[in-house]
Design a protein around this nucleic acid. Structure first.
Lengths: 193, 193, 193, 193
DNA sequence: CATGAATGAGTGTTCATTCAT
DNA sequence: CATGAATGAACACTCATTCAT
């Protein structure tokens, strides 16, 4: 049940090293790190980078994919816990915290992705992400903990706009403000005019 | 006692043309527009760019400064209106909308600033911004429309994290969610655990 | 007294596949096709290419050799037919047509050979080529169909300079003009001065 | 009545140096000389090459254009001489000799042009070339020195297929054979079968 | 003071060749 | 003996910045 090709042991090792180096270099030096720098950090020649990832965009995309995979996994796990009786709203809050945390760690990678036009999610991942998230949201709404208008896209927005380049305290404050909207939505918007 | 140097009329004209061209080119083609492209769009030679702005970073910084100046001006105007009796919360809402709108228009410029490490605000501007905003916030709190914990930094966060690269509808939804936190803050945060 | 080494059946098969793939790839994509592309087209790994042909130049040389072998074979056949009574001049004309035709088909391979400095003929081939051609020429001259000054090198020149990258009609016109010189040579050359 | 832009004195000097260096380097080292090598030979930085010629193809094209210009000029001069009474066929012969000679000198440049897909003639040049050549041909035909079927394209073919990479003696022999076709065309083609 | 030609280090990417598996 | 991963020197081209005109 393995992938399409077995892939040699050393090739796998290199792929891992490259991804790690890419993540680290992009994080440390921003979206414009030369491929040469990533190669050197990975301890391989540039050609090897290009054998594994035909394009810089592809490499950055792969790093992003790893990141997205972790987030997707966590959401699925949360959905499972909700299915077993955990309170949905608590899971949402925790999810938001962890997700923002993870995004903060990889903020430069996201910047690189934006610069290069690499996709953040594969279609498959988005599907899994949406499925799990919908179940959690439905549960929280039926618990009366979540405003019924809240959608998966709102959560996606949360992930994408979190101030990942700020201090933890700032991020936390941001989360507090944003999550408030998930419970009560300002009925007074535009009201004062 | 005017500016440090008289600055000839045509020099002023050039400066203005350059700033306008820079804003337009960066907006149209992203943060990586060559200086040559900006020069051509401005109808001057590159050398002239470098006479006015010693560095690309300086030029982008100046463009950002213009943008920030407009925002700062609007906030000061809103503060003045509040002083004259306008309801503070309504001003905050309108301010948020206009600010996000303006940021959306200049999002590429912000990206350029980030890429180049140019500052978003001068100290002076931040001071004026904070002063005016504090007055508005205080009024809204005393009106009972705003949660007493809300600070100027919260508003700054709003400006900086708005999803400026999304469709207007998305930005609007985002604003609704975020502004909710300004009124009621989730007391239940972490409660479900 | 067979070849220097028995050469296993599958090795022969590989060699053939490689040569075919090389010819096709070079023809299709020009002289600069990567070795990898040839390897893939041949259904083998690059390493196998290098086992059979230590250098790209060697591979291209081998393809050219095949081509030259066909031409050499045709000339020998024509010489044989002349020996059996066929009119020599008719054979020369037909030979010219077929040779130019064949060269047109493999023009990219010739270009590749030039680019890489690969030889067009082996010494052995040239010897066979010259021998047969001399017999045909001698016959045509003694028939009174061919100008007595015509040499094997003239025919070689015909092969090498034919406009192989042009349309068939152009090639045909070219052949007509060039073959005229084989019969009558401009006595007036320089005469008008 | 100068060109569209005056172009600074030093820029003109550089353009000339670059063209000369390009011609020499391509001749010496073949069509694949790196731009860096040409730059170094010209005593300028690569950037300067690209300021004058946006593309390697453009540079090679410019070298070719110079070459074509010389040939075009010679043909026009010959046409003028014919108009003044010089015998047309003699001019054709001399033209063929000089043209092939010139092509031989710049053979590598032609190869480079082919490799890069650069055009050999500008439309304007081709028009001038064709006009002048037609006049010469018409005169030679009416003199009874040239076969009436000969066209400008035949002469173009002569230029393009001359064995420019061969020794002078070979080129001369080639020319003799080819020009024969201009006078008498083999009526016997295919006759012997 | 403006011009725009020149600079040259740097970028992503390719590809002939080698060699561990 | 085949495989295909790894190598690394090249290459065409870009662009912020400098400086002669």
């Amino acid at each position: 049940m393995a992938g399409s090709r077995p892939l040699r042991a050393d090739a796998v090792r290199n792929r891992t090293k490259i991804l790690a180096a890419a993540r680290e270099q992009i994080t440390r030096h921003g979206p414009d790190v030369p491929m040469d720098a990533i190669a050197e950090a990975a301890g391989v020649a540039v050609g090897t980078l290009y054998r594994h990832f035909p394009t810089k965009t592809d490499l950055v995309g792969a790093v992003i994919a790893e990141h997205s995979e972790i987030i997707t996994g966590e959401i699925e796990a949360a959905a499972a816990r909700v299915g077993e009786g955990s309170r949905a709203m608590a899971e949402i809050t925790r999810l938001a915290e962890r997700t923002v945390e993870a995004s903060a760690r990889d903020r430069s990678v996201k910047a690189a992705a934006q610069t290069l036009g690499a996709a953040h999610w594969t279609e498959q991942q988005e599907e899994r992400f949406r499925g799990a998230m919908e179940r959690i949201i439905a549960a929280a709404v039926s618990d009366g903990d979540l405003h019924p208008d809240v959608t998966v896209d709102d959560f996606l927005m949360l992930i994408l706009t979190a101030p990942t380049d700020q201090e933890p305290a700032v991020r936390d404050r941001w989360l507090t403000l944003f999550l408030a909207g998930f419970t009560v939505q300002s009925r007074e918007r535009n009201a004062g005019d």
